[in-house]
């Protein structure tokens, strides 16, 4: 399925120049190639193992009884696998709180993610289309200004934005977390604009001759051709939202409305004690779907970024 999606786009880009074909790879194989490939393998393997160690440790811990989590020397394989941790992690704190926090946080996070991703894709594709394919006075200056906004760190505007949302009566609601996404953001605009510019302008001209409005061209010609780029923007915004800590920390008040990234802190009890095994079980549940998703979509994902052409 992933392959089919890439092929969809191929005719539109200068495929020959961009993608190495298998035939070409074979010709470049020499003796020196074998040695360096072995070296690359070795380095990548070691690096991968190093990168995976914390994760492996996380999973291993998530399956241990609490006594074993602090054993010296460290135990990699639990004496017996403690699947119960996962159940305990999910229901942790439900007796005190009167609801199942993990599921509640997961639901909240999902809702915010849906709203943010939908808003990001919808608003930024519109705006990027305007910057990429429509001519209007002051466009290039506006685009430069847009890029400049990437330099504004959140902490700078944190206080006034908090005041703004307070005046709107939005503190304690999800609105501060998702409404801004519907009004565009520089990074996504940039990525999508770069991609939209690679679509041949003749397509638009032809549609225009057929009497299509700009809206129709955008919706029926450009968007269907831009799926990989849209997917990349969606994924990036999904990850940013999924991981956002400061936003929920400031705007959400009731523990019941927390998102996962904020809620995970709950496993560190007030006295600094940590239910290691439960926290790790919870984290494993949190990232498992993302890992699976990435493993199967990585080609599309990387291709998508490549096609947006980060070159200025």
């Amino acid at each position: 399925m992933a392959k089919a999606e890439i092929r969809d786009v191929d005719p539109l880009t200068d495929a020959g120049a961009n993608r190495p074909t298998r035939a070409r790879q074979k010709t470049s194989k020499g003796k020196q190639g074998v040695a360096s490939k072995a070296l690359i393998h070795l380095v990548l393997l070691v690096t991968s193992l190093i990168f995976l160690t914390p994760l492996a440790w996380m999973i291993s811990t998530s399956l241990k009884p609490i006594e074993e989590t602090m054993k010296q020397p460290p135990v990699w394989i639990p004496s017996h696998i403690f699947w119960g941790n996962y159940w305990d992690a999910i229901t942790y704190g439900s007796a005190t709180l009167g609801y199942i926090p993990f599921l509640v946080y997961a639901r909240n996070t999902l809702i915010v993610c849906i709203l943010v991703v939908a808003g990001t894709v919808a608003s930024n594709s519109l705006v990027a289309y305007s910057f990429a394919r429509l001519r209007w006075p002051g466009r290039d200056i506006a685009f430069a200004a847009t890029l400049a906004t990437m330099m504004v760190p959140f902490p700078v505007v944190m206080v006034p934005i908090f005041g703004l949302f307070r005046d709107l009566g939005w503190i304690g609601t999800y609105r501060p977390l998702w409404v801004p996404a519907w009004f565009g953001g520089a990074f996504s605009i940039f990525l999508l604009r770069q991609f939209f510019r690679t679509i041949p302008f003749e397509l638009s001209e032809a549609a225009k001759l057929d009497g299509c409005s700009e809206w129709r061209i955008f919706k029926d010609v450009i968007l269907p051709l831009s799926k990989p780029a849209l997917a990349v923007v969606a994924l990036f915004s999904f990850l940013a939202t999924w991981n956002d800590f400061l936003g929920p920390l400031i705007y959400l008040l009731d523990q019941k409305t927390f998102t996962l990234s904020l809620g995970l802190q709950f496993y560190q009890s007030q006295h600094g004690g940590t239910q290691w095994n439960l926290l790790m079980a919870a984290s494993t549940i949190v990232i498992a779907p993302i890992i699976v998703l990435f493993f199967f979509t990585q080609r599309v994902f990387i291709q998508g970024i490549a096609l947006t052409g980060l070159k200025g």
């Binding site: 690096t47 991968s48 990168f51 995976l52 914390p54 994760l55 996380m58 990850l239 999924w242 991981n243 800590f245 996962l260 990234s261 904020l262 995970l264 802190q265 926290l279 790790m280 919870a282 984290s283 949190v286 990232i287 993302i290 890992i291 990435f294 990585q298």
Partner: peptide, 11 residues
Amino acid sequence: IYIPSLVPLVS
């Protein structure tokens, strides 16, 4: 190499 950057920062 990519998945560690998917782990929630708090975890």
